[in-house]
Amino acid sequence: MTNTEITIHTDGSCLGNPGRGGWAATLRRYEGGKEVKKRSINGGVKHTTNNRMEMTAAIQGLKKIKKGEKAQITVYSDSRLLIQGMTDWHHKWQTNGWRKAGGKPVENRDLWEELLTVTDELNVQWEWVRGHAGDRRNEEVDAMAADAAYKAA
């Protein structure tokens, strides 16, 4: 039996915040340690925020994976908000009726809920990478997201 692994590198971009935005994700499938498939996707939105684009990139990447996929999936992002939201904070937010510790509503609740839905039945790990620090896969999705933001109408 071969080990199957899927990596998803994601990024969001915004020209102004809020402003025109773009998101990008690159999915790579590995069988037995060898890359067997690569797919890149991106898109843009006329008026949005950077955080929404970071989250949208992860959602759109994860939507490309079939429910119940048995592979180990690792999502890489330079967004600390996304990583910490999915690894540490969302449980408390849900328990507190989607409110933060200070009682204010969680921003982008719709996208957090969608992230939880798309990760259901998947084995997902979340990993933070430093943005603009020479990580070639992060730089790749950064360029794709920026291009999508420029083209957003």
Rank of each mutant, 00 (worst) to 15 (best):
Q94I: 14
L116C: 14
W93A: 02
S13Y: 12
E114V: 09
A71S: 11
R52H: 01
I83H: 01
G61V: 02
R130L: 12
A146Q: 12
M144G: 12
M53S: 05
D110C: 02
R136K: 11
T2M: 12
T26A: 13
Q125S: 10
I65Q: 01
H9Y: 14
G131M: 12
K151E: 07
E54S: 08
N108C: 05
I83Q: 00
G97Q: 11
R80E: 09
D88F: 10
G33T: 13
K37S: 15
E54L: 09
N50F: 03
D147C: 13
W128R: 02
E140I: 03
K37G: 13
W23A: 03
Q84N: 11
A71I: 03
Q125Y: 12
G97M: 07
I73Y: 03
V75L: 04
M86C: 08
S77P: 14
K151D: 04
G102H: 10
R130Q: 15
V36C: 07
V118C: 11
K64R: 13
G68D: 05
G32F: 14
H47R: 05
P18V: 05
Y76R: 15
W126P: 04
M55R: 02
K64V: 09
G21I: 07
M1V: 09
G85S: 12
G85Q: 13
M86T: 04
K92G: 15
R52D: 01
G22P: 04
Q94P: 02
R137C: 12
